[in-house]
Design a binder for these strands. Sequence first.
DNA 1: GATGAATGAGTGTTCATTCAT
DNA 2: CATGAATGAACACTCATTCAT
Lengths: 224, 224, 224, 224
Amino acid sequence: MSTPEPTITGGTDAWRTLPEAKRHTVTEAAVDEFAARGYSGASMNALVKAAGISKGSLFHYFRSKGDLFEGIVDAAFGRVKARVKAVRDGTSGAPLEARLAALLDAGFDFVDEHPRLASIYFQVLRSGDGPLARRRLEEMAQLSRQFFAELIADAQTRGEVAADVDPERVAWLLDAMMERLLAAWHAGDVPADRRAAERRAWVESFRMLVARGLAPVNEEIHGA
Amino acid sequence: MSTPEPTITGGTDAWRTLPEAKRHTVTEAAVDEFAARGYSGASMNALVKAAGISKGSLFHYFRSKGDLFEGIVDAAFGRVKARVKAVRDGTSGAPLEARLAALLDAGFDFVDEHPRLASIYFQVLRSGDGPLARRRLEEMAQLSRQFFAELIADAQTRGEVAADVDPERVAWLLDAMMERLLAAWHAGDVPADRRAAERRAWVESFRMLVARGLAPVNEEIHGA
Amino acid sequence: MSTPEPTITGGTDAWRTLPEAKRHTVTEAAVDEFAARGYSGASMNALVKAAGISKGSLFHYFRSKGDLFEGIVDAAFGRVKARVKAVRDGTSGAPLEARLAALLDAGFDFVDEHPRLASIYFQVLRSGDGPLARRRLEEMAQLSRQFFAELIADAQTRGEVAADVDPERVAWLLDAMMERLLAAWHAGDVPADRRAAERRAWVESFRMLVARGLAPVNEEIHGA
Amino acid sequence: MSTPEPTITGGTDAWRTLPEAKRHTVTEAAVDEFAARGYSGASMNALVKAAGISKGSLFHYFRSKGDLFEGIVDAAFGRVKARVKAVRDGTSGAPLEARLAALLDAGFDFVDEHPRLASIYFQVLRSGDGPLARRRLEEMAQLSRQFFAELIADAQTRGEVAADVDPERVAWLLDAMMERLLAAWHAGDVPADRRAAERRAWVESFRMLVARGLAPVNEEIHGA
DNA sequence: GATGAATGAGTGTTCATTCAT
DNA sequence: CATGAATGAACACTCATTCAT
């Protein structure tokens, strides 16, 4: 994926500016900690030890535990949104099933490249743990569902999708399926040498189910 | 649902026996607390106050916080399994799409009847918070997927499902879709007077997608 | 003074009951600490060390620093009120100057017997440091001034005090004078062998100033 | 009051020289902070933010929190002493009660003009919070009492005050009364449109009590 | 001269668990 | 069998002060 990704800053606003390298060390440690133990399970004590800085310094740069967490979540969500947008723009005009498959593929990429951010997304936020968790997730879900619904409605106008399909409800189903699939991919321990093949198989199964499930039943069209 | 449901015992083994009524009071309070604040967020202090029991007694009957939690999770999982089994046995011989729709319906029932157990399932365990959370969830998922795969394979032998469908992989997809749907139903705030209609609509959308997505392909049309 | 005095409980309500001896140890240490360093200067760490208990135990018995403080303040105020009431009832009918002198004497007693409670009263609360400090002090002051005003008005009806004296305003002045006198007595370091004589001299000076300052100027009365 | 008042320097000795304007900004903020939260409650962090100065600069010019505090206290005390002296010199030869009333009036002026310095005087120092607080206050009190005693002794030689009055002791009583009166005036919330009348009434009551309480006794009446 | 990053001891409070009674 | 007193480690966070730049 060539889109430049925003850096994890770990702070919601311009609170303090911290040299890039050090900031990286701290946020990396924080991502580790939050991903491993959840928001309320994470310990600032453990974090400073892992990051090799003093407690005073940590709070010098990040107002509070919640602030640090929000910065990380923001960054993660920003990356996800950017990737979704890239897929939408990059596949414009392609058949629905191909677009959805591309999206799923991008999801696999993200999970593989940022497993701990994925942990935070799938586990921590999903549990409602942490500040604004519920609201953030709701926003993300709405955005995601809206995107799916657009794709489907668009395909419907082009006759690719059966007319009796309710775009919003099916968007929900597809979103659900895809998110759980990614969560499982993230949680599962597929060995490295099998991952590529596995991914392809998943995408193919998904593509087939979607293609058949949504295609118009009218023979004249299918027969073409 | 007429299947008798196992009682929540809140203890993994026969550690101490506590009069049924008192045990019920304690586990109810524990379910409240765990559902509301997650495993590590839950406070034994708050729990004893809510249950009207002394701290000494609590630890006399439940070895530890983790033990109490596991007992509750066990009970919840036992109930879910029982319901799944009831659907399987009660719909034997019916078309696949009807069986899946029945399962989804049973899921809606469970979430509506036991919202706090659903909270623990969807939020607490999913976040990896609490002892054995990951392993328990994995077991449950395997059982669930195995069940789906059986249904599909069974339907495949009866010619209801296309032969090129990989039962295991599609079981995964269906499981994913269904679980997220239930999680959303649990988290969402559909007003009471709309719930019945909403449920029907969801089940119908799900049924249609499944029916079309898995049905055998008419060769004259799809072939080539 | 024979009035039985309320025990310092160090807790505003029946939060936890603590064996008398232990409770005494803790509240003694707390009084020491608060008297020495003020409310916000006092350290719970130092307190537990001085009391010889664990931090957990301290918070088991006293909800918070503020709660502990309030209990002590309550006890101190209760004792002061009881003594004031005892003087009022015990000197009913006596000439004004004698009643005021008795009150001042009782004040000296209190300060000598409870120097650290006096510290809290004169220093900590006066500084507005600590929960409810301002309100508590205001209540106490109103009670005190009301009492003075009653004494003066009463004496006025008996012709002991000049008619052109404003009871409320003079109550203020007398209250002020007496309180500062006690504060100074508390802060000063009069050696033990001089204290008795000093006290007598202070009371006498006060009595004389009051007697002359408030007496009616009409000769027929004074001459008697 | 036309006496030029010493500037608040906020540093006990010539530690570093800071441009007048900046120094003023800092000490103003410090007075705010100390008056509002007491010595140990005051935060250097909050102070630098309010003063718009860097932490490094603050500690460059003021050795420590205590040093800054002492400078402010010194300045406040210097102002008070100057005003007392001005009253003494400006009322030389006047009757005792007039001189005392003038002093009380000057006190009201000071409290009204510098409410935050008055806060520090009445609340912070009185609580013993802050370096040298006790000693400073004691010095101030001695000076004040000595001044009162001089006034009284002087009046005694002119026959204005009864011969059996002990100047030192009565100086104490007057000082006490006056200080508490000012503290109450400072703490009280007399509305602006009532302040002038209230002040006059207080001064008058004080003057009357003093005049009668200290006046030589008419032997025909009081004697025997 | 001026900055703000860095520090570590300090804050009050909560925790799950043990154990003597 | 039941109680609740006792514990000490852990919690997030603030503090006044130092010092390299």
